[in-house]
Design a protein around this nucleic acid. Structure first.
Lengths: 355, 355
DNA sequence: CACTCACGTGGATACGTTTTCAAGCATCTC
DNA sequence: GAGATGCTTGAAAACGTATCCACGTGAGTG
């Protein structure tokens, strides 16, 4: 419980002013001999500059915030690992918050970060654009990862907004635009449209016609891509959503299987949903892939453990986190461009020909 | 990008001194009318006290640090969720670091936390006791979770130390003492000894005689408990370790299966090891549980997805995190006692009678 | 009435740093 | 040799808060 040396101690011990010490340690200019002496004294006193003083002076905390719905979702854990890796190599701290997919908790956590003067945030958003406005207004540098905030439901019926959204998904063959619409926030996402399309085509190639989609919160883009991929007419009954908890995911999957025994394949929008689908199928004595083929979004280590091993659409979770952290750190330059990373269909054993 | 109101602004707007504002907001004494007016003005200006100023003044950052080897290990993710839940309800920030099981990275992260003046830390330690000494000397309040730092290898041959360690595991029937030996640090751990013993007895009851243990870094206590549970003579060849990575876990499991085809059951010391065991068994055409029975430490959602579903020793990861956070926060009181949580054998389908 | 006591209050200080500014000094140029 | 130029340097001011201390006021007590 020794008291740490301050810059003042170093200055006195080295016989120089505090300003000089600060300059030497921050890479400013100084004569070689002073520099050397200061460095020596600092090392000798085991001096480490206090982030508190610096932060107060610069009116901002270094590092970044990270907001994820649920670390127990392996994909989010991968993403977090990516962020941490980048932050570590930059020597910056990461303050983490788990939102449980609840916009309210998300807002509270943003408030907490604001209080800490953390002005850089990378988030897998749960709230809609409206709930994100305050954070931006407060001057935060935000990067969305994995998904974009939903357009507020009130505007969902607004034909203009709808048109814009549809446009996002339908125009051209280029990777889906990933920048948030009304919000001007960069993002790092996977190419959901391409990933889903590949999955659906693969299933089609195996003869499947009745393909279902099970999504969770934040999977709207994937659902939209799914609708696009299956083409008209889309059977809306085959598109179901859970609320984020494992229980609700299971309920959604189980309900789907029971209400539509005619379906022969299902695409799960995330690993928690995939898990639920496997569980529900087993419970209902549906055999994979004989009775139902399954493709899961997210490649996670345990996908190989299932029998049969799960065919998945892999998205590079770790890379996404790393890139997002890079974006939010390098925001010193101009407003960074959004990033869209490729997905990859990894064929294992959970899909078979329609029976 | 509005500049936030400071305590000074509030003081002026309310016609009082800054000291009064500070008192009102920190729960100090003030006349009811001043209190009310200050509160009103603060709300009106949307004033939020800056953690920067407060931290500098009190020479310590609020909140806590959290150090885990790998978030991708679902157990650690559960633990982290527990910590986050407790921190959130206390309104405190959590700064997270992932050590990859590397003592060096761990030390670097501790240094970073020190620089941030984060003086409360909950850690799943990777380094040995020696490497933890500096953190304690710096005055950090540390709580270990899930495991304790190893005794430095140099001392491992010291008979006295060894005796103490053995004592820890052998004396009495009470839950294993969880306080670190030479370090005086409280901890939150599962009752490894009881968990392992139950698993081994269960396997014994099924007729298994050659039982192996696959561990990872930090699983020394579990390995020791395993040795104790199988009793003399222990076949040391049946106790193998990976280094922490999935690859090395797989290599350890695969090597074990190949070098000792006579084993009929295996206990995996953690979910990553369990995953590796399943994979390796499948690769070698060993059928579970027909050819080899498997018990995995840690209950994780995907344990049920395997076929057969995995029999596990469940430890309450989330609770452990929550309790650890409570300990580290309430350290205002006297030195907190360590906590040992119970484990539970959850029988599913991965164990069968010896064949 | 004088004295004490308790309490509400605000001024001032300190926390450790970065940054601005002006001064000191040596070298260079005409 | 005088002025200009460049570099190094330290004093001082901020950043936003909590807390010490002294002051004033009112009530209670002798």
């Amino acid at each position: 419980m020794e008291k740490r040396a301050t810059i003042k101690d170093v200055a006195e011990a080295a016989g120089v002013g505090v300003a000089t010490v600060s300059r030497v340690l921050s890479g400013g200019s100084a004569s070689p001999q002073t520099r050397e002496r200061v460095l020596a004294v600092a090392a000798q006193l085991d001096y480490r500059p206090s982030a508190l003083g610096r932060n107060l002076r610069q009116r901002r905390t270094g590092g970044m915030g990270l907001l994820v719905p649920d670390l127990t979702d392996t994909f989010h854990a991968q993403l977090a690992e990516g962020v941490l890796a980048c932050a570590r190599s930059a020597g910056e701290p990461v303050v983490l918050g788990s939102t449980a997919g609840d916009p309210e908790q998300e807002s509270e956590l943003i408030g907490m970060l604001l209080e800490q003067s953390v002005d850089r945030l990378i988030a897998v958003p749960s709230g809609d654009e409206e709930s994100w406005a305050p954070a931006l207004r407060a001057g935060m540098t935000v990067v969305f990862a994995d998904r974009l905030p939903a357009v507020p439901s009130a505007d969902d019926d607004d034909p203009a907004v709808r048109a814009v959204n549809d446009l996002m998904l339908l125009d051209g063959a280029a990777p889906a635009p990933a920048r948030s619409r009304s919000l001007d926030v960069p993002s790092v996402t996977a190419d959901d449209r391409s990933g889903i399309r590949t999955a659906v085509r693969y299933l089609r190639g195996l003869g499947h016609r009745r393909i279902a989609f099970i999504g969770g919160p934040g999977h709207d883009r994937r659902a939209a891509a799914f609708r696009e991929a299956v083409g008209e007419p889309v059977d809306e009954e085959l598109i179901v959503f859970g609320t984020g908890s494992r229980d609700s995911a299971y309920a959604a999957a189980s309900g789907l299987f029971q209400s539509r025994p005619d379906l022969s394949a299902v695409v799960a929008g995330g690993n928690v949903l995939g898990e639920a689908a496997v569980l529900a199928a087993r419970e209902l004595d549906l055999r994979v892939p004989r009775d139902v083929s399954l493709i899961m979004y997210d490649d996670v280590p345990w996908a190989e453990l299932c029998s049969p091993p799960l065919t998945v659409v892999a998205q590079p979770g770790r890379d996404m986190g790393y890139r997002a952290a890079e974006l939010v750190l390098r925001s010193g330059g101009r407003r960074p461009r959004s990033v869209v990373l490729p997905t990859q269909l990894i064929v294992r054993g959970s899909c078979g020909p329609r029976h």
